[in-house]
Amino acid sequence: MTAPTARPAWLERPSLAGRIVKALAVAIILTLVVYPFLAVLSTSLATQGEISRKGGLVIWPDDPTLEAYRTIFSGGVVTKALVVSIGVTVLGTLASMVATIMMAYGLSRKDMIGGRPILLVALFTMLFSAGIIPNFLVVKQLGLLNSYASLVVPVLVSAFNLVVLRNFFVNIPQELIDSARIDGAGDLAILVRLVLPLSKAVLAVIALFYAVEYWNAFFHALLYLSDTSKWPLALILRAYVLQGQPTTGSMNAMSDSLPPQEGIQMAVVIVAVVPILLVYPFLQRYFTKGVLTGAIKG
């Protein structure tokens, strides 16, 4: 563990000008990010009357209320969905990580036989997507309709994550792998003892990507689930967000016009973000700390 402002001996003192420029840049970025987010939070705490009066966004609520949150959490629908979402996210991320690590590692040997065609098979899936009907038919044929598995299995491996992870695996210095092999380690042992420990940062990133994907996913639930009791949080929250929005693109059909609910919409954003805020610091540890210090030498 290093002290917060530890500066290695070889690193020169930062110049004053450099520090000012940096501080300014950080300040501007923080403002740009925090201001709208604060607006979202404030609006979620404002009354609908105040929101209407102020035209939609409230920067500081005059009369803060938790009404929007109370609405969302009343009735237990959201609590149940929260359980579903956490389950799907945790198990889905685990399953996806296992499958992705296996495949990415399997493809990380540069001269492997059949390696390139297999990689291309995965890569092309990023470029061609079949559309909802064929996907639906496959899920239906496999008997996955209305099951939690339908939220995980059809999106088990993301080609993007696979390619990125493989790219990091490939860039692990070959010397390390060769020396492990000389020590008699097999392919699996190398994966477990060498590659994975060296890749903590990217593994954390990929796990985060998967987790966020599962957490925010609503579309498969929409197409494949029939019981609202199985709905994940993202779909319930979507129902809140869409309230009062007309169907896009269609002018006459389906135009039941409901009062705006910005307070609830903004509260929904907050509710969806909080769990990620909670998990993030645990993963952040891994991609802000170096792992390769002196690895090659040792």
Binding site: I132, I133, F136, L137, K140, F219, L222, L223, S226, D227, T228, L235, R238, A239, L242, Q245, T247, T248, M254, D256
Partner: peptide, 21 residues
């Protein structure tokens, strides 16, 4: 009464897949 409920904005997609299924 077995009701499958779909958010209105997304209904057309579910409708079409159900027909196709």
């Amino acid at each position: 009464m077995n009701l499958t409920m779909i958010t209105q904005s997304d209904y057309k997609q579910r409708f079409t897949t159900t027909i196709a299924g």
